[in-house]
Each structure stands twice: as C-alpha cells, then as structure tokens.
Write a protein that binds this DNA or RNA. Sequence first.
DNA 1: AAGACATATGAAAAGTCGTTCATATTCGGC
DNA 2: GCCGAATATGAACGACTTTTCATATGTCTT
Lengths: 125, 125
Amino acid sequence: MGHQRSGNHDATSAGEGLDADAAKTVASILQGLATPSRLHLITALHGRTLTVGEVVEAVGMEQSAVSHQLRNLRHLGFVTAERQGRNIVYRLFDDHVIDIIDQALSHAEHLRLAAPRVGDDATEP
Amino acid sequence: MGHQRSGNHDATSAGEGLDADAAKTVASILQGLATPSRLHLITALHGRTLTVGEVVEAVGMEQSAVSHQLRNLRHLGFVTAERQGRNIVYRLFDDHVIDIIDQALSHAEHLRLAAPRVGDDATEP
DNA sequence: AAGACATATGAAAAGTCGTTCATATTCGGC
DNA sequence: GCCGAATATGAACGACTTTTCATATGTCTT
C-alpha cells in the first residue's frame, strides 16, 4: 500500500529549506544532544535498560543532575521510562538517536581528513 | 581547541560508547546546528553559494549577527568562505550537514507518529 | 587619495542552560 | 503505619551563547 500524507506541511528534507517552525523543532532536537553529559546518558543506555541509580553509576554525575537530564531527554522523545518496583527503568526510545550521533562523529572525521588547516577561508590573516 | 591525542579515535560508532573527548567533539558539532538562526543559514546555503549580503537578505538577520554565526559555522567546518572582489562567498563544506538535519527531522516525525501523548513515562501524575 | 560599499570584530547586554543544594514524593519491607 | 531507599522537583547560581551596537578592515571606483 502506498503512503498517504494528509495535511503534511513539515518538510521531510532539509534540502527543501526549513520553515521557522521546523527550524525550531530541529534546533531543540539537536540541542538535546549537544552536551557531553546527555551524550553520555544516551550512549550508556544504548542496547540496554538501566535504572536511574545505574545510570548515575555509569556516568558519574550527581543523582539530581541525572534526573534532570533524563527528564529532558524524555521530553525530547529520546528515552522512555517505566516504573519497576521502586526503581524506574530507562531505555532509548529507538536507535535513531545513535545514528544522529554517528553522523556527527563521521562529520568530525571527515573534517579531520579533508581539512588539515582550520583557516580555509578568506577572512583570517 | 584541543590537540588530538593518539588514541581510540576510530570510534566511528556511538554504539561503542563515547570517551569524554569524543563526547565533547560531538557535542560541539551538534551545538553548531542547534539554533534556528544557524539552521537557516545552512539551509540557505544548500545547493548554492551566497555572499554575506545575500545571506543577510535570505534569512533576515542583522549583518553583524550573520557574520558572527558564519564565522562560527566556519570554525566548525560546516561552511567555507572565499573572497571574490569585495564580496565574500560562502558555501557548504559538503552536504553531510544536511543529512544530519534530515535525521533530526526524521526523528521528529517518527515521534509524532509513535507518541500521541507526551507522558509516556512512569513519573508524571 | 577619498569615498562608498561589503564584511569582520570586540565588548556589552540579554537570554538560555546545566549543575547543585535542599526538599518532596513514591514505593517496598517490617 | 513507619522507615529507608529510589527518584523527582524547584530555586538559585554560574557559565555559556546569541544578539546588538559601534567601529575597524579591506576593496573597488572615480
């Protein structure tokens, strides 16, 4: 069966340009991945589920900070939580987020190979 | 900003976990894409080259802000600049960055389809 | 050489974000 | 019902970012 999109005004490709709304959405999604602490949380959760306490151990941050950041990630749809006894078990929503991180890593490596010098522009002396 | 230590930089996959250094790198790359203004700059430059003045027109920001942000993007390796007469022409370094934005968009849509309600967790009343 | 134009730059202001501290909530066991 | 363990929450503080304003630099034209 074919896909049927009704009333879809979200650009599915950035190549087409982003309206202000899509830009805001993308910005907050990427912002959610734009700090080392949250990246650690996410990679710690890759392929397994962890309780908050286990996450705290895994990443070495304060319990409160972890809780705050996990809530953040929850609201961005990167992780989900489920109560189990007196623990709360977190897991990645899906592995899509890992792909995004991989792309960023790949960009970094691509840069390292292609740009020996940072000053590849016409403005610095 | 930092020197590359000889070490496991081969980690082309976040699934293997990120050391503190890689996390910092990824974080700054994604941070570079994590604001609407920079996303507009980048998508404006997709598939074509623009002078600073043209970018200013395209995105409707102040000339100074555009210049600051373009420098930012330059340092992150997303765009390159070349002098042409009294203009300076900017272009995307490559289309990799568009892929990252697309992935973020795709995550957003995936979420919209799978998560009718935000409260898919065990913590909110 | 002077003036107009295009772009960059530095500092200050305004806003945003992450962490910490202290405290509240929710659950299980006794 | 109460106590201890696990997690969440709110407010406050510091750090960082984005924008703006004013000014500097470089370039073309005449």
